[in-house]
Write a protein that binds this DNA or RNA. Structure first.
Lengths: 191, 191, 191, 191
DNA sequence: AATGAATGAGGGTTCATTCAT
DNA sequence: GATGAATGAACCCTCATTCAT
């Protein structure tokens, strides 16, 4: 009981600190202090800092995938399903700025780099939902005839940048703008 | 008298190492070793690691701006000028993967974060060409009526992601794909 | 749990080395080596070299004050009380040459300089016993009518120089000479 | 011609900087910069930092001795000659706070320590005038019968401390106070 | 399971000194 | 004589990880 609690507490605290201060700006001792555990305790649950960081990422990733799947219409017009998905992810990131910051940190660190490399080799695609959607869209000839990975970048990238702008206070991602931008993304790939 | 030579060599080597290993993965001693100078020599040309990193970024930025400006048609249909610009930046980044990696590192480090903040406050916009183009496009009502920063994210973000995919080997950004993707970006924002 | 032991050991060793070699002549690593601890261990007990140096001084100061207070006659002829005090401090310094050397180092370092400045501003007088004695003596008109700080310098300075001479082997501060010199100090200030 | 000028300039500047910032607070490059010479130039005139520091001290020492000798009455009552000498040195130090600070730095550094040791062994006494005066005074039985070195400390030490207090702003050493304190010093040693 | 004192390799930076020009 | 770019040993400090309790 306490075990789970402690592990969870460590992860929560670590996410917060790492997202805000960067991986190199947070010593293990800082995490331990804020989580009210001893430094050694962290090593009972995680083999090391690397594992903690990696596991933290996997958890967020899992959460995002779950969020995307939840209530996703497997039928209906492609455009609507696309807008549903992109809107969903946008809202999730806007509502979870810490997690967004964390993902960015991770992706732009050696961890993320090597992860991408591993996935390239293993063909493991975590963004299965999007990919499945795109595959279907390609088969239906409703989107442009370009590599699926390009479709992905064309639509996901803007969303990520927009969230960053939103968090930094450059724009306010309200429902109206979410609608407009996700539609723009669709315009980018639709045939 | 070898000032220029040594300074240049240090910057070249630093760019390479930092781009590949991340800012925290490269000790000053490593840069010195690869540049065939003593550690202290670096400090003759740069006040510290921070300054080296920052200066390296400013240099690349300057280069990109110059590249964009060079031969840019100030007249003609908006779409063509947009495609010219996006194509140009795409080719530059594809041709300079190291510089691309470096910019990414920088932007996602505390340096980049604070730089963005500074620029937000000071309204200094380094991507002036793009912004000027967008402002003109907005005035001409040829693009969607959304915040200019959103227009920017909608078009720049995909390009960056595509370059990353290209460097990682997911796609090959040949002329054909460059054309297709930049056109897609235009579709995203055109009215 | 060896907290106290290690901290004490570090302080003892540091006092020794710093007194003999000067603050700049003793790297933290030297202290660590002689104290049989790792460098990092010192930083568990002291925030840095500065704090170690300062704390070391405060400890000696405290000890001296305690020594002076101990058994000090609050009544009786001024001259006798003066001789008691000066004799006491002389004996302490002769018996603790390392601490004497350390105090000298400290007083003549930036630490000591700024400390003096702070105390000047804050009117915090650590040599309270002496000062109290002088104030009483001034009120009783048994000493010359010159600034109290001058009285202080006239009596303390010779003692310090004498101890230094003693440590260097120029003279031997035995009981006879202690008596003679402290009496001479009294002669200097008595009306 | 220029040689002498340069050497002098270096020494002047070094004195100033070293007195104010301490031996470890002044890199050779700083001295060179303020003296408007290249770093290497300093090494043309001085074997190294150590020699520069030592030579600087010897120069001041020589100057003080000269000042003391100048106009010193070799005849007359002992007390008057003593007051003349102590007053002279007091005024010199008050008028040359930088040199005073430098001497203090030097005396409390490893340089000074080893110098004192050397002189102890070699019996070289630089303060010849004072010593000669004391020897005469001892022979005349006008001062107490204590080791000559103790007489020296009893009279020189207070002066030094007073000058320090003056420089730090604790007291103002005007002519009146100079008279009072030097007389007090005489009271300390007179029989 | 939990602790946290202890470790020590490794990092950024400084600066006295040298030497080719 | 004069220069100042170049050197690299040495310093202070951090922090991931371990292990005795």
């Amino acid at each position: 009981m306490q075990c789970l609690d402690k592990r969870t507490e460590i992860m929560t605290v670590a996410m917060e600190l790492l997202a805000e201060n960067g991986f190199h700006g947070v010593p293990m001792s800082m995490i331990a202090a804020k989580a009210n555990v001893a430094v050694g305790t962290i090593y009972l649950y995680f083999a090391g800092k690397d594992e903690l960081i990696t596991e933290l990422f996997q958890e967020v990733e899992k959460e995002i995938v779950a969020t995307l799947r939840e209530g996703f219409p497997t039928e209906g017009p492609m455009r609507e399903r696309f807008l549903y998905l992109t809107g969903k992810i946008l809202r999730f990131l806007v509502d979870n700025p810490l997690k967004f910051r964390y993902i960015e940190q991770f992706m732009n660190s050696p961890y993320g780099i090597s992860m991408r490399r591993d996935r390239l080799l293993g063909k493991t695609v975590p963004n299965g939902i999007f990919m499945a959607l795109f595959e279907e869209a390609i088969a239906d000839h409703v989107v442009k005839d370009i590599p699926i990975i390009a479709l992905f970048s064309l639509t996901i990238a803007p969303l990520i940048f927009l969230v960053r702008d939103h968090i930094l206070g450059f724009v306010t991602l309200d429902e109206a703008l979410i609608r407009q931008t996700t539609e723009a993304c669709w315009d980018a790939i639709k045939r």
